[in-house]
Design a protein around this nucleic acid. Structure first.
Lengths: 205, 205
DNA sequence: ATTATCTATAGATCTATAGATAATGC
DNA sequence: ATTATCTATAGATCTATAGATAATGC
């Protein structure tokens, strides 16, 4: 009713449609219909589709980064801790399923939309990676985990946690897994993710 | 010049653009420009954009399946063999990089385009999975590899081999890795993929 | 004659804006 | 008066087709 409501409705609708249909697929008409207004309203509040996207992204990046930061704050050097971090990362990707696909689409098709984040992002990555790189190096030295760089470890975790979720459309539409089967498959993948990461770090001597 | 040439030119251009821009992004105009004809020619030869896509896909599915079949023909029960299969799978995904992303887009947005493959695909998967499921079970029984189902093993390999390549746009556009750095990163990922898979299968007793 | 190619155009649909009207806040 | 909302429409662009013209194969 009041300004804030419609504006928020539009942002919520936009987020839903972007995530569901991708950047190109989420037309202003579709978003407007979902928000229960005419598409002219989107332009009234946000001028352009790009800016709506950036607004949506903005509300996310903050949240995502703090979640990721919390996740990386742990002292990563113990195998059990890394196993738990893997679970948290899996759940993180799981609860942001289609967001990752959206992010990849935009990175590929409209990297300009992400420009304003690049330097910021780079700085965050930079500090996190030097700190964790150091910790990882010491853990390897002390023989707590097998030889690995932090970059490889991070890429390993992202890899095993995100991949299944990116293939979700295949599970849904091609294999036609029913929700129950999918749920149990995903639970399997979560266990497997932890096994893959921790086994790789165990010292076999 | 002759009919076959233009028709082939169009298919080649279509494949290139679909892979580069995705299904939605590869407009008939773009494909026509790439092929050096007017877009009316695409309709003359193939009637619709959907049919062009299906023609392109057709030429691929055969090739991909035979590659995949060759890859799965090995008796999968020895850790070294599985390690080599992982390398082959990584190279397979690497040489079909953007095809996987295209496939995921179509599976999500236009699953109807894949309908004609579903039953066929299902049959292939079905036979392959029962055969390999049995082999895997025996290998586990004989103590050659640690307890795992073939489905999990297959999903593990696909996961560790495909993920990095799906994140390629992020490496290119956000991290702005130069080709040299990317190449060495990918070589790292390839080694890591093998390590992850084989370590998970080793008997630790 | 048949096949290949182009121009022109129809009909959808998309983003964006102009301008009229309704609602709200003094 | 200002803010919010809608209708109508401009201007791009996309897929698809009709119909004219050029090239090719008898």
């Amino acid at each position: 009713m009041s300004k804030d409501n419609k504006e928020q409705d539009i942002l919520r609708a936009a987020e839903k449609m972007f995530v569901l249909k991708g950047f190109k697929g989420a037309t202003t008409n579709l978003i407007a219909a979902e928000a229960g207004v005419t598409h002219a309203m989107l332009h009234y509040y946000f001028r352009t589709k790009d800016q709506i996207f950036l607004k949506v992204l903005d509300s996310y990046v903050g949240q995502m980064r703090s979640e990721l930061k919390a996740l990386m704050e742990e002292d990563v050097y113990d195998i059990d801790v890394i196993g738990r971090v893997t679970e948290v990362m899996f759940d993180f990707f799981n609860s942001h399923r289609r967001h990752v696909a959206l992010f990849l689409e935009v990175a590929a098709d409209r990297p300009d939309l992400l420009d304003s984040y690049v330097s910021d992002f780079g700085r965050f990555i930079g500090t996190a990676f030097t700190a964790h790189g150091e910790r990882t190096r010491r853990a390897v030295e002390k023989g707590q985990i097998r030889d690995i760089s932090f970059l490889s470890l991070f890429a390993d975790i992202v890899t095993v946690c995100s991949s299944t979720l990116l293939f979700e459309p295949v599970l849904d539409n091609l294999f036609k897994l029913d929700p129950k089967a999918k749920e149990s498959f995903l639970a399997d993948r979560r266990r497997e993710a932890v096994i893959l990461i921790t086994d790789r770090l165990k010292i076999t001597d």
